[in-house]
Design a protein around this nucleic acid. Sequence first.
DNA 1: CACAAACTAAACTGCTTAGTTTAGTTTGTG
DNA 2: CACAAACTAAACTAAGCAGTTTAGTTTGTG
Lengths: 206, 206
Amino acid sequence: MEKPLSPRSAAKRTAMLDAAQACFLESGYASTSVDEVATRAGVSKATIYAHFASKDDLFGAIICRRCDDQAEGLSSLSLPDSSDARTILTAIAQRLMALFVSPEVMGIYRIVIAEAPRYPELAKTWYEAGPLRGKQRLCDVFDDMKRRGLLDFDDTRRTVDAFVGMLRGECFHRVMIELPPNPHFSAEATIETAVNFALKAFAPTA
Amino acid sequence: MEKPLSPRSAAKRTAMLDAAQACFLESGYASTSVDEVATRAGVSKATIYAHFASKDDLFGAIICRRCDDQAEGLSSLSLPDSSDARTILTAIAQRLMALFVSPEVMGIYRIVIAEAPRYPELAKTWYEAGPLRGKQRLCDVFDDMKRRGLLDFDDTRRTVDAFVGMLRGECFHRVMIELPPNPHFSAEATIETAVNFALKAFAPTA
DNA sequence: CACAAACTAAACTGCTTAGTTTAGTTTGTG
DNA sequence: CACAAACTAAACTAAGCAGTTTAGTTTGTG
């Protein structure tokens, strides 16, 4: 339903989005000026306003692009074909944790949270394209493990929600507010605790 | 090590901090002007600059005051004197969840996250006075439960971290980015899932 | 090469903001 | 009531910013 868009334009557009994303992640939305974005993108300010109606519109375009990326990234997230619950859960937790603390995902997370009260629809779009879709995929994996007798639990969605939540502890928060890491709460330790926790709670009794 | 401060001054100071906090929580740091704060506090702008060296300084004073409040609030957090693990864990989870989603705590959380990259020491101060101290208190409670044979686990801090993490799931995120609540992930359901999870994993075997 | 679309640098408008200054007023205290 | 500290309203400086305009340049295409 959209643009053929000449190759030259497309390249500029990408450069602008990349630059804007970098600026916003570094300095936040309000503290980033359109001139900065233009300079960083190697583009004139007039060009930015030829592509985007306003600074808000540019912000929206960035979030939407990230949503598309997330959708792609999720479908390529493959898991080991193991029949050991610990192996699978650990692999899931490692991938999730790596995602959560990656600078890009963390940066978007920070900025969406900060701007959510003023851009509720954007926050909604991001949340549904990212965390919600991700959890849906995890539900499929958990259901599959249940079917294979590797785990036993009642409500898949709530179980997955709790499992993912355990990964957002001290370690995650320290990255989020840029505190030095605490070795007692390393990513590995957090993952191990969560997996042990889950195995104890959901090991099949039968 | 500080100021006696006349009662008149102290009242104005409080009014300024209250107004500034409300403004920052509503609109974020960058989007709030000092004039707005002055108007809201019923105070002249000159008075603000008589009390605080800069807008940054004002921001810092707010975070510090919240830290003091948190420290007080935590020590008055009393728990039921029960010998049933479920009762105690549920009470803990309810209090934590109520705290997490309260507008004031949520507002500070959002703003600290958003501004953390630019105010790392403030974020650190806040984190240590709030979440970290809170978890320390929880560790005491968990240790006590272990001593009384109500729970069994290895590493207290990691266990508490995981338990608290489970409360920061879908429900919490929806509040954070102001999405309408999902009945399947109500606060009550989240608490129940987390408590069931913990009881299964940490019920004493002996 | 001619033409149109997309771009550029730079100046410009109009507005907002942090922070200061001034000149005068309120308020508690002796 | 006299005095000093704290306050006030309002004007002011200096800077930054979103967004526009202008006049001219690059670039792919027929």
